[in-house]
Every structure is written in C-alpha cells, then in structure tokens.
Amino acid sequence: MAQFFPSVTADSLKNKVIVITGGANGIGASLVEYCCHHGAYVCFGDKAVSAGVQLAERLCASSASSSRPQAIFYETDVIEYKSILNLFDAALDTYGHIDHAVAGAGVMEIGNWFDPGLTLEDVREPATTKVLDVNLGGCLSVARIASVYLRQNRPMDADRSITLISSVAGFKESPGLFVYQASKHGVLGLMRALRLYLSRSPHLLRINAVCPWMTTTGMVQGIEEAWRNAELPVNSPMEVAIVTAGLLVSQQLNGKSMFVEGGRAWEIEANIDRLEPQWLGEEPSRSLAKGQAVLADGSDWTKSGRNAR
C-alpha cells in the first residue's frame, strides 16, 4: 500500500471552481475553508443552513476578491435531485464553469435494521432508507450531474474531477453499521464503475474516493472516548480535507481510493489489483482479467437497446 502525500501549492487551487455537498460541518466545512484559503471559489450545499451561511459569510469577509464571492452557500438536500441541480446551477451561473465536484454529504446509521427485539408485527413495517438515500443516492446524483456540468465552458483538455467521500466502512467490516456500511461499499463500487467510463471521451473526467477512518466529527461521539483510550489514530476534519484537496489537484490520479488514518493517506486500489492472484487465485484471476478486457470501459453496456427487454 503506497502512502499518498497531498501536494497543494499556493497556485494549484487558485481560481478553481469547486462544488461541494455536505459542506457546512465536519470534513466538508474544512474542505470548503481549505480550498478558499488557497484561492479557489467554492459553491457548497448542506441542510445545515445556519452553519453554511455563517461559513460562507466568514470566508467572503476575509477574501480580497471583490468581483466574485469566494464562497456561496445554498441549502441542499442530496435526497432531492432538483436540490443538487440548483447547487450546480448556482455555481455555473456565478462562476461560468466548474472544475471539480466533491460528494461529501453523509449521515450515520439510523436505528437498527436487525434489532433482535423485532417481532412479527414490527418487521411488517419497512425501516428507513435515508442512510442509503443520502450516502449512496446522493453520490450517484452528484456524479451524474457533475459529469455534465463539468464539461460546460471548459476546454476538453482542462483537468476536471469528481471526488466521492466513502469511509473505512467502504472496504472493512463495521459491525452494527449495517446500512451505513452497505452505502459506503456502494460509493466505492460507483467510483470503480466510473473510473474507466468517465476517463474516455466525451467525459474526460477523473474520479476518486476518500475513505476516512476515525475522524473527530459529530458522527463518532459515541465511540470517540473509547477510541482515544485505546490510543488508536484519529483524523481531524482538516487532515481529511487536505487529502481530499490533494486528489483535486493531482491530475495524474484517477480511480484511486485513499484510506486516511491519523492524518496519513494510503492508496488501496493498486494493491487490491496487484495482489489479486494471491487472494483470488492465479487461475481465476487470469480468467477474470480476460472478462474485464471484454467489458472494457463499460460503453457496450450503455448502447441504445442493450438493456431493452
């Protein structure tokens, strides 16, 4: 596993236009602040209106720019497709183009889908799907919309990217977080499904994912004390934000997943592929490689009429 050292220079984010969902608190807010302080223009959305408005006002007040706002905030619910469209419209209308998009909105587990106390009567009522709708559905919608908006008013050779925020739960079991883990696995699956597809014409976009481990946000209040007592590594939201910003400016990176622990980032996709003959077996790995070559970038799956029944 190779360590990733984010390299954000004084000019690498300057004048870039970035759309961020889930930007009012935690990792998202740190990313908004970090990008603005490095000269980017950020249009961010969240359901936490008060926190979002205050952050945008503070960043604009500290900015030397007078022609365009350094940051703009829009109330955004990623469950609502039109709400995400409104956010991207605001960015395009204000700044004329968009360079990068980050799907950062997320929620923690709600209730217990597999509560041992469930009765035959209880289980007749469906459990909430909000965690899936926000964490995975939101990423799907952001990626779909970004794939079009990032192509507007930009030369084809301009670097553009989409970054999805997953979690360590995206690749490592997290007992008790049943729906959360399924959603974060889905986020990594989405990135892997898109990394070849979006890199080809006409999209020509990069897509990557960030998988933070324990990070000091409101999501981890219940286990933070035990974690620190065990002397395990902890991320600050800003440390995860810096890794994320590093992905935005690293034009050679596409289809990568960064596991972030204790402020350090480790790329996991290369070793998953490199070690496949060992964990899967050499013979099935060779067969799988042939099948993947036939699938190529997935374009054949999406040809008109292919999915008709």
Rank of each mutant, 00 (worst) to 15 (best):
residue 1 M to Y: 14
residue 5 F to M: 06
residue 8 V to H: 03
residue 11 D to M: 11
residue 12 S to G: 10
residue 14 K to T: 05
residue 18 I to A: 00
residue 23 G to T: 15
residue 23 G to M: 08
residue 26 G to D: 01
residue 34 Y to C: 03
residue 35 C to V: 11
residue 35 C to T: 10
residue 36 C to I: 05
residue 39 G to K: 07
residue 41 Y to S: 02
residue 43 C to L: 13
residue 50 S to N: 05
residue 52 G to H: 11
residue 53 V to I: 13
residue 59 L to E: 10
residue 60 C to L: 07
residue 65 S to N: 08
residue 67 S to P: 02
residue 73 F to K: 10
residue 74 Y to R: 11
residue 79 I to L: 13
residue 79 I to F: 06
residue 86 N to E: 12
residue 110 I to D: 01
residue 112 N to P: 00
residue 116 P to W: 07
residue 116 P to V: 12
residue 117 G to M: 03
residue 119 T to S: 14
residue 125 E to R: 11
residue 127 A to F: 12
residue 130 K to L: 12
residue 133 D to V: 13
residue 133 D to T: 13
residue 136 L to K: 02
residue 139 C to G: 04
residue 145 I to L: 14
residue 153 N to I: 06
residue 153 N to V: 07
residue 155 P to H: 09
residue 155 P to I: 07
residue 162 I to K: 00
residue 164 L to E: 04
residue 165 I to G: 00
residue 165 I to S: 00
residue 167 S to D: 02
residue 172 K to T: 09
residue 177 L to R: 06
residue 179 V to L: 03
residue 180 Y to V: 13
residue 182 A to S: 13
residue 184 K to A: 01
residue 189 G to F: 08
residue 190 L to G: 01
residue 190 L to P: 01
residue 194 L to N: 00
residue 197 Y to E: 07
residue 198 L to S: 04
residue 203 H to S: 10
residue 208 N to Q: 05
residue 211 C to G: 07
residue 221 Q to R: 12
residue 230 A to K: 15
residue 234 V to A: 05
residue 234 V to C: 05
residue 236 S to N: 04
residue 237 P to V: 04
residue 241 A to H: 04
residue 248 L to V: 14
residue 249 V to F: 06
residue 253 L to N: 06
residue 257 S to T: 12
residue 263 G to E: 13
residue 263 G to W: 11
residue 268 I to G: 09
residue 272 I to S: 06
residue 272 I to Y: 02
residue 273 D to Q: 15
residue 276 E to G: 01
residue 279 W to R: 00
residue 279 W to S: 08
residue 279 W to G: 06
residue 279 W to M: 10
residue 284 P to L: 14
residue 287 S to G: 07
residue 288 L to R: 03
residue 292 Q to F: 14
residue 295 L to D: 04
residue 299 S to I: 09
residue 302 T to D: 14
residue 307 N to F: 14
